[in-house]
Simulated scan of single mutants.
Amino acid sequence: MKLYPILVVLTILTIGCKDKPKPVVKSIPRPTVSNDGNRITFPDTVMMRSFTTEPAHSEVIRTDFSAPGHVAAMVLKSTENPAERLVLFDEPSLSENYTAILQHRINIQTERGNLGRVKDLQAHGAASGKEVIEAQTQLANEQAAIISDEATLKLAGFDPEELRRARPNTILVVCEIPENQFGMIKKGLPCTLNFTSFPNERFVGRIDNVNDYVDNTTRQIKLRISVPNPDGRLKAGMFATVGFGVTEGKFMTVSRDAVVTVQGRDYVFVKTGPQAIERRELQLGQQRQDRVVVLGGLRENEPVTVVNTLQLKGLSFGY
């Protein structure tokens, strides 16, 4: 008789356990990333709260930068032909190129004169068509050869025409600047130079050539700077640090915490919607304290992520 209440309780507990539903495990929502990694879309605005943004804005700042360089050539007046310039390069191969260009110029003038003479003879029946073709071929060969030598000089930062017009008693300094600094550089800009051989002196130069191409590997652009050298103290091959002055102006800046760098390229993440963030590549200038100058890639007041950017970097680039 005493077992009856116990059996009733056990029966009720058993029924209760059978009727209790099992908990449903819900999947955790995750952000969606585009195939190229440029756009990240979040499932709700709650997840976006951890990625604080601030607007990119312009401000008046002072910015400057410097770059290493070396004296790549000296320009002297030729004693044999005062109309020509004697150029002493720090690389013997460039001297050979420049000398070849001067010789090609003489040869081209000679071949043009020869072609004109042969054509005149042909007009009077004293020369054949074959001789005209041979004269044309000789001229074309010289013109092709000079193009090759001129290209070699230009790749090294020299323009053959400008070398012929360069002032005597001048040195030519070649330096390279990063691509992202190019917007601040232009032909004719003055600069200061400190040479290792004369650490306590400052020399003044001027940019007289900016190369037409960016090196594919280093992403650098060559500049050529002319510096007066009346006493001949500065020699080909000397090293220098080139300072490009101080520029005060209004520049757009972003927080240094907003910038991530991947394989030598700089990026920020811009909020483009309530649940969307876009990766943006930038061209950056100098850093001032905790701010970085933006030379390109952003518009005024665009909201840039400044908190948890490393998480966005991992989502965008897959690591």
Rank of each mutant, 00 (worst) to 15 (best):
P43S: 12
P43K: 10
P43W: 07
D44Q: 08
D44W: 06
T45E: 12
T45M: 13
T45D: 11
T45A: 14
V46F: 05
V46R: 09
M47I: 03
M47L: 05
M48I: 03
M48C: 02
M48A: 02
M48D: 00
R49K: 04
R49G: 04
S50P: 03
S50G: 07
F51M: 12
F51D: 00
T52E: 06
T52K: 11
T52I: 11
T52A: 11
T52D: 03
T52R: 12
T52H: 11
T52Q: 10
E54A: 06
P55L: 04
P55M: 05
A56D: 02
A56I: 00
H57T: 10
H57F: 07
H57P: 03
H57R: 05
H57W: 11
E59I: 05
E59W: 05
E59H: 08
E59R: 07
V60H: 09
V60W: 02
V60K: 14
I61M: 10
I61Q: 13
I61T: 13
R62H: 11
T63R: 10
D64S: 08
D64Q: 06
S66L: 02
S66K: 02
A67W: 03
A67G: 01
A67F: 01
P68F: 13
G69M: 00
G69I: 01
H70Q: 15
H70R: 14
A72E: 10
A73Y: 00
A73T: 08
M74C: 14
M74S: 14
V75F: 12
